[in-house]
């Protein structure tokens, strides 16, 4: 096993999981909602790619972005907006309801076997061969991840709406008292989450073109674990957490002998438990920030 090779693959998958984490963390930041239904946006993106696989590639990708963004926006508008002032446990259950409802829709519409979203499989060819073997998709994951993360940071730090989102994430009521529109900042957070989900769907289907009803769910559960391990309260710790879980999954996957790959999730979760025992406040939380008294 080539160490550099393993690292590069790990960073690339980490970048994809970081995008899932950004979608989760932005919504958690502005409305304290753990959006379990985020995975269904990714699944919707996957099916869109499958259905549009005969289209020109750019058009298929553009359609995927549109579908994911519209679905994200509609999710908030239809399901979560009314629940803004209820207890967090209630909204969490509501996100389960949305997730499972959409999974039933996927199952009825597309069946359990899955659809093939074979749009960008050309990216599986190697770009660099020799000592290191790097496929195009690895490079595309790194670039896409980097650009979207940089774009999010610029939006948050350099625009008025970004400033309003940061304010709302710290103190929503104080922000509204200044005239920040709750509906707008929340909608923008969902729209960004939709863009991230579309990107994740496009990137993941290159290596795993088979889109099943639980396509996005698996990715999201893992990313959610990463977000919690990293520290959910801050965007950057949550994003790093997502990155770390993607990285760990990739590295452990390559380290495990192929007949033991079924143990990969167990190995990842074992690692998660160890981390949580050592750093209960979050892997990347500033020292001394953890351990909130809750009981």
């Amino acid at each position: 096993m080539n160490v550099l090779q393993t690292l590069i693959d790990g960073v690339a998958l980490g970048a994809v999981y970081a995008l899932v984490a950004v979608g989760l963390a932005l919504i958690f930041g502005v409305m304290r909602l753990i959006n379990f239904a985020h995975g269904e946006l990714i699944t919707a993106g996957g099916y869109t790619l499958a259905l549009a696989s005969a289209w020109p590639k750019a058009a298929a990708i553009a359609l995927t972005v549109v579908v994911c963004v519209v679905l994200a926006w509609a999710m908030e508008r239809i399901a979560f907006r009314r629940l803004r002032n209820v207890a967090p446990a209630t909204t969490l259950v509501a996100t389960f309801a949305v997730a499972f409802t959409l999974q039933a829709v996927w199952l009825i519409a597309f069946g359990p076997q899955g659809e093939s979203a074979d749009v960008l499989s050309g990216l599986n060819q190697t770009a660099v061969s020799g000592e290191l073997s790097i496929r195009w998709i690895t490079i595309v994951m790194l670039i896409t991840g980097g650009l979207l993360l940089a774009g999010t940071i610029l939006l948050l730090n350099r625009t008025t709406i970004g400033l309003q989102m940061r304010a709302a994430a710290t103190d929503f009521r104080a922000a509204r008292l200044l005239g920040v529109r709750a509906d707008t900042v929340i909608s923008v957070a969902f729209v960004i989450a939709g863009v991230m989900a579309a990107a994740v769907a496009v990137l993941l289907t290159v290596q795993r073109p088979l889109v099943t009803p639980t396509f996005g769910l698996q990715v999201t559960i893992l990313a959610l674990v990463g977000v919690v391990v990293g520290g959910m309260d801050r965007l950057w710790t949550a994003t790093l957490g997502g990155f770390a879980i993607g990285f760990a999954t990739s590295v452990l996957g390559e380290a495990l002998p192929s007949d033991q790959r079924v143990f990969l999730p167990s190995a990842v979760f074992l690692l998660v438990i160890v981390v949580l025992l050592l750093r209960p406040g979050g892997l990347f939380a500033p020292r001394g920030a953890g351990g909130v008294e809750r009981v």
């Binding site: 008025t160 940061r166 710290t170």
Partner: peptide
């Protein structure tokens, strides 16, 4: 508001810019 409710992690300038929203 009571207790000021400034945004501690934002800069003084950013806090002021939020005043312009209204």
């Amino acid at each position: 508001p009571e207790g000021r409710h400034i945004f501690p992690h934002l800069t003084v300038d950013e806090n002021l810019r939020l005043g312009l929203v209204g």
